Simulated assay, not measured.
Amino acid sequence: MSLYVKDPQARVDHAIDWSAYLAEQSLVASLWTVTPEEAGGLMVEADAFEAQRSTVRLGGGVVGRIYRLTNRVTLSDGQVDERSVTMRVEER
């Protein structure tokens, strides 16, 4: 799992390139989640996906908190997979 740092006032984009894992499949669905969910916490503002890549725009976050951002995708053959990254929020 990768670690990223985000300012609480910043709106940042994050993407996962799934092409190395797909073996002739493509993405047909993508869902981004943040754990823990809390008031003022890190939030998904927008998300999208293409055949081999998923993206998310993140906002907010409480200074000093660490969040897990998870992308769960469904592939064209029905398989489901997910990847997670860690986001730490601090003033920058």
Rank of each mutant, 00 (worst) to 15 (best):
M1E: 05
E37V: 15
G78Q: 04
V5Q: 13
D77L: 01
A15L: 12
S26E: 13
E37C: 08
A23L: 11
L75G: 01
M1F: 03
V85W: 11
G78N: 03
G61T: 06
Q9Y: 14
D47W: 04
E37N: 13
A29V: 06
E91H: 06
D81K: 11
T70D: 09
Q52Y: 06
V12M: 12
E38N: 04
L31R: 10
R53T: 15
V12C: 10
L27G: 00
T86S: 14
A23G: 07
K6N: 06
S19Q: 07
V44T: 03
D7R: 05
L3S: 08
Y67D: 07
I66P: 00
E91P: 03
V80I: 15
D47A: 03
Y67M: 05
L31Y: 03
L58T: 09
E82C: 08
E90I: 02
I16C: 09
A23I: 07
D13V: 12
A46R: 10
V56T: 08
L42W: 02
V89M: 01
V73F: 03
S76W: 04
D77Y: 01
E37M: 10
M1A: 07
W18Q: 01
D13K: 13
S2W: 04
E24Q: 02
E37S: 15
S54N: 09
A51S: 10
D13M: 10
R68L: 13
L69I: 10
A20Y: 05
A10F: 14
D7G: 06
E38V: 04
M43H: 10
L58I: 09
S30W: 00
S76A: 02
E82D: 14
G59R: 14
R11H: 15
G78A: 02
Q79V: 07
G40C: 02
